[in-house]
Design a protein around this nucleic acid. Sequence first.
DNA 1: TCCCCGTTTCCTGCTT
DNA 2: AAAGCAGGAAACGGGG
Length: 257
Amino acid sequence: MKPILSYSSPDDRPLNTYLGLPHVDEPMGYVSSGSTEACDVSEGSFDHEDLASSLISLNDNDLIDHALPDILDEDLRIFEFDFGSYAANQLTAVEDRIAPLTEEVVEPPPTPTLCPENVDDRVVTTKKTAQSKRKSSLKRPRRPRPRNRGNRSIHLWEFLKEMLNNSEENKSYIKWISKREGIFQLVNSSGVAKLWGQRKNRKNMTYEKMSRALRYYYEKDILERVPNARLIYKFGGKTRVIATENGDDSLSDSSEH
DNA sequence: TCCCCGTTTCCTGCTT
DNA sequence: AAAGCAGGAAACGGGG
């Protein structure tokens, strides 16, 4: 179950303005989603500072990996946040202490809200106090939401990215060779495959099978071949920015490929 | 219900 | 010889 975050920006200022985050110049055509959260800033009512401090607090408490949003739809001001480093228990804890919301309910929650996403994909909108509610004149006509991708199962490359983002924790399984170039190595290939199998509920997953899925990525430009290298892969044009964002290149001096 | 996508499974042959 | 790589083919499961 993935939480969805709704956010309203009454004066059309982009969310990242309030979060002190860099602006993402162009909408991502290819956004990781198995481990992301949607942020719809087109409607609803929210106090910017509340949301900002909430996200920053989540970030400070390691509940989110980083608070850099991907813009999904600039007009609608829909962003996605990477919650890839959520530990399962942390996610549960967040969901437990944050009240679920519906479109109809006007009861004001005390804080900016993460809430479980509904299976029927209805729009979830956060509400706050009456005085901070958006005036109707400021409301934009509601356009259809882009395909909801926040609840679908994770892709393999997203899973690998997730592991790489927790490099310290997973260094015995997978590591960056050059983060800047998006090159990584499967240190324990069968171990990674096993974890992948656990994630996808495929207990018979092996590296042989997982690597077939990785090879399909070559033709989709999700991965690029690294010639004459074993267990070394490189994120391709479609994924490199996403996979390597928010990181330094401190591990990039290896020359083993 | 059908179709598409992203795998998963199995396979053969090749390379390191 | 073992492990990994390459890629064809078919099946599968989830989502639209």
